[in-house]
Design a protein around this nucleic acid. Sequence first.
DNA 1: GGCATTTAGTTAGCATTGCTAACTGTTAGC
DNA 2: GCTAACAGTTAGCAATGCTAACTAAATGCC
Lengths: 148, 148
Amino acid sequence: MSTPRKRAAPAPAIERFHHLAIRMLRGLRAVDEAAGFSGPRASALSVLVIRGPQCLRELAAAEGVKPPTMSRLVKAMQAEGLVRSQSARHDQREIRIGASAKGRALMMRGRARRLDALGKLFHGASADEIAALETVVEALDRALARPL
Amino acid sequence: MSTPRKRAAPAPAIERFHHLAIRMLRGLRAVDEAAGFSGPRASALSVLVIRGPQCLRELAAAEGVKPPTMSRLVKAMQAEGLVRSQSARHDQREIRIGASAKGRALMMRGRARRLDALGKLFHGASADEIAALETVVEALDRALARPL
DNA sequence: GGCATTTAGTTAGCATTGCTAACTGTTAGC
DNA sequence: GCTAACAGTTAGCAATGCTAACTAAATGCC
């Protein structure tokens, strides 16, 4: 199982990257929570703001969770007035879920906080390192386009 | 609060990086779980194998969680025979927690699976992209040394 | 020596988030 | 119109995070 297949990237860098990503997100979760809402909420709200109203299945798929999980999340956010939902005209089964003004505002604030924290994180970075980050982002984006 | 301080890195790249990191880890969690244990277990076991036996507080700090959370995690892993603990000689309050042979083996297997998945992820990466990854890892490591 | 304080870890109880299985209600197909 | 498929919800479980309150051991001060 640990057959040494041909591998482009050296394992140590990848493993360290993995571990660092975990630590980074752990730190950011704290920032999110200080902003008044937590990871999944922030992420789902982001999708709703950026991609516009969605039905529950789409939203669940976008977030990589199953419908019941998203259903509960939406219900909670609705109770907090962050999203609104209405049944679709053409199909009464479907619900269109959209961010409310309050939700949008909260999302923007959370986003600003996260970016601020991340900005501080990369504050001491050199130009080379920033360029490297952009390269990695491109590569990751491409790689994650297909399922892991 | 969203005062536009001087900022070295462009926000879009950082934000995309954040989002990609979330997606990557979500995918890897599935891999971990297929290997028979989940994120926090894998991570804690990793620390124990790599850094050697630790007391509970050290381990909790290394994982960025509070002692009660780590206490429960250790208890569960102990029940599965993945770690062993004994009280320190010089201080009966402290417990030294170490990976068992079984824990080490499981950790290595999980690690291999994760690396395999990550390796596939970066399979199509160019040499430049790999170099960029290493640069980013160094920068992140440095940045995360101090609290977010 | 003996008692108060600090420190290490645990226990209890809560919230969030993930899942699967089973249910309700709506649409589509025959 | 009846059945099959589909959208979403409800119920119930497990894992992981937390805080508050507890136990037990070490330290410090008289």
